[in-house]
Design a protein around this nucleic acid. Sequence first.
DNA 1: AGGAACGTAACG
DNA 2: CGTTACGTTCCT
Length: 277
Amino acid sequence: MYLLRPCCAHTLDMSGPSSPEQQRANRILSEPLRRSLKRPHPCSLSEYLNNTNRLSHRHSSSSMGVRGLLHPTAAQHRPTQPRQTKPRRAHSSNIDLWDSPSGLHLAHAAELLMRAGALTLTPTPRDQAGVEGEEMEGGSGAEGDGTGCVADFLPLLGCSWFPLNPGLFALMAGGGGFLTSGGGSMGIAGIGEGVEVLRGESSSPGGGGGAGRRKRKRCGECVPCRRTGNCEECSACRNRKTGHQICKYRKCEQLKKKAATGFEMVFPSGAAFPWLQ
DNA sequence: AGGAACGTAACG
DNA sequence: CGTTACGTTCCT
């Protein structure tokens, strides 16, 4: 079922099976995968793709497609009361743009961004033809008044001439208030909760905590993750009470790496956000 | 740099 | 509430 991947296997001690430690490691390797690790990882690519596929079936009629992508899973939003031992981010319900009864927050934010020049709408020829001759602001139909803003804006998220611009989300992710434009920076809070998913699980020491402090999870697929049972002899096992660390033979390869500082998109051109150039 | 200790998130 | 284990800090 599982394939040994060289990228993970190369980190093992390949000095030879003769040493007792290596024999133990091999024994652990041969043990079955723990049941908890057989579950699809909630943040895994496959799970993400599954969700995306599911959402794509029903995205046509509502904002649920985008909304589902931007919201953490229900499992990540535990219903129990958070232990507020440290300052945490405000509860999403206070500032949830997508749950806004009218959806005006997002529309308003987009409008303000457009005014500030941070957001540009780039119509495709097809859409351009479709809207040609119509006024973009306060035009005919539903977009005339404030409440029509939603009807206008949300479909745009799914259509071709309002691309979900990661650059926009990058701006949003750094915001402190609903929309701030002081000191040359601009951001929108509230979407940050969803952007966190897009940015990946990251931890940035000294990076302000909050979203970045969320714990990463073991990948469940690398060789150490597939091991069951602790060696009981490594430093982590010996100091389990005080060390609070997993057996070093079971430490996920991904978690051994330094957490990324953020979600980075690299395009063939090498530019992070070519549309911002 | 690596390990130990600790805080605490996540989960059962 | 107990357990597990990730993230951070401190120490060597």
